[in-house]
Design a protein around this nucleic acid. Sequence first.
DNA 1: ATGAAAGCGCTAACAA
DNA 2: TTGTTAGCGCTTTCAT
Lengths: 348, 348
Amino acid sequence: VAAEPASAPLMRKRPSSIDVARRAEVSQATVSYVLSGRTDKSISKETKERVFQAAEDLGYVPNRLADGILRGKTQTVGVLMPDFAHSFNSQVLQGIEEAAADDGYRLLIAHNRNHPEYELHQVKMLQEHRVDGLIAVTDERTIDSLQDWVIPLSDSGVPVVIVDDLKLDGRLDTVVSDDVSGARAAVEHLIAMGHKRIAYLGGGSRASTSRDRRQGYEEALAAHGLVHHPEWVVGTSYRRNEDPDLSPLMTLAKRPTAVFCASDGLASQAMMVLAKRGFRIPGDLAFVGYGDLEWARYMNLTSVDQHPTSMGRVAAHRLVQRILGESGPPVTEKMEPSLVVRGSSVAA
Amino acid sequence: VAAEPASAPLMRKRPSSIDVARRAEVSQATVSYVLSGRTDKSISKETKERVFQAAEDLGYVPNRLADGILRGKTQTVGVLMPDFAHSFNSQVLQGIEEAAADDGYRLLIAHNRNHPEYELHQVKMLQEHRVDGLIAVTDERTIDSLQDWVIPLSDSGVPVVIVDDLKLDGRLDTVVSDDVSGARAAVEHLIAMGHKRIAYLGGGSRASTSRDRRQGYEEALAAHGLVHHPEWVVGTSYRRNEDPDLSPLMTLAKRPTAVFCASDGLASQAMMVLAKRGFRIPGDLAFVGYGDLEWARYMNLTSVDQHPTSMGRVAAHRLVQRILGESGPPVTEKMEPSLVVRGSSVAA
DNA sequence: ATGAAAGCGCTAACAA
DNA sequence: TTGTTAGCGCTTTCAT
């Protein structure tokens, strides 16, 4: 057997632990002991040195696939999302990454392309890569088919956490934001600012979301003895690229003095429309949005922050607990949003 | 050997191809042939049937780790980012995911936490997971240390693509947006709208970015024979939570009639400040931003779209080509942004 | 304090 | 048309 040159210049095979062993003149087992830093297998200082040196010289990078195949654990979690570009989702992802990384987990991501079949395909991929668990951020289009695969997956021993939906609440670990409470806080703020005629501009993305925010609105009015005028509730269906039609609101004899909007997008569109017609904000009409997207600050829009990054962190943490073997009934983490007051609801 | 029940109820070990083989009463090799759909190894129809059936019955999910360890390819690419929550990055990620998935690759993501050391650690992790390639979206804080690991990594046979930075241009495949051209288009649009006194509000995130946009601004003025007034260039350093100070601009005897801003955030802040002081937009002052963030539409802000999703797609495509063995010198894809004209620069 | 050998789940030569 | 066998890179008993 010819001796290999210490450092051949051109691309060779990646060094394996066997190569390290040969170079350090120890057994493969010893390399494993040293490199995984086991304290039970007392290894002499010089041997350790030699192994580290050999690994360094060779540029050895351990292969986690082998480890994964052996231990049946990959330190990897799957994240399934309808979209990475939208602000809420990307912030959730950010939170998941932070918490997962803290616990030593990597993220393998997948997209559902708004299509149940494709989603199923992606989940299969994640399973083939042997993710230790899965976080699914739900989506209007695929939410109905979700339970078809998610329950079996969970039963098969892969922990699953659902973010932002309650359909599987009680059957699976879930992280949601309390929309009722957030909406209530928003409207109570307007009431505290002296408003008595408060409109609701609705029509968010997800049905349950929209329903809950409206419920919070109504609860707040009721709690403060304010009459609920059905004509102050507008736009149950709203399309992204269309300005919301506020005329039913603005032509009333007794015009509202404040508007609570189910989303920041809706709020800003409405504000632009009204500003164009000469309405002063908040003087003539106060506004509160929902979601507290990045630009709410730029627009000086009072809004409800759902803390999506925290939601992600909590989801990752729950998942890791399950991966680590925590048992017990499904947990629903209902997270409290908070109101961020800015100029659109408070006169300067 | 006792026969196992067809479908034992409680969590057993995950079935392996050996289990499938036993159940179908064929060899493990045959299972492999059938399940990977090889056309060269003609297998009888009945055998195929039996294998599929057995796999189905057992709920068999192939283990890609084993495959990866064998072939030395994981069909996985690493994505390293400074942040997943910011709009530009998350859209790039979206694009990367789309293109990578189309080519059969999964994404393993990592975060640098704005820290060179942590970044190095994350890159090591990605290598341990044997990603087939890596896309790095750069960042002010870690850009300087990037080359320390990225060149060796690339030399070691792991293809790398850099997004949004030119420092390694010519040494590595790179995808960038042409900031000079984008800025030029923005300013030429203002000139076409009849403006002759155009200010520049600068101070973006990355230095090179800011410099290039300013260069485009100056080029456009020069190309149209307009004088470049240094006092029309303001705010070279701008802080996120502070309103930009426009007084040096607005107190001039010959006030500018239009402002080109190096970012949408800057533009919207300036617009809010001026709207408060009673300026009409675009009547008194026209605005163009940069980045075309989601809310530019809501604010009716003319802006320059960098097409971040396309940038991501192009980056993923380049990477896949390299993974597939494409050779040749490093490619720099300089992508053309496009101007999106809205109400802030054109009177209704 | 260290090593030999088995085996994780899979694919690919090579046989039959 | 199918099976046998070796081996990918690693960890882990069990020896020594």
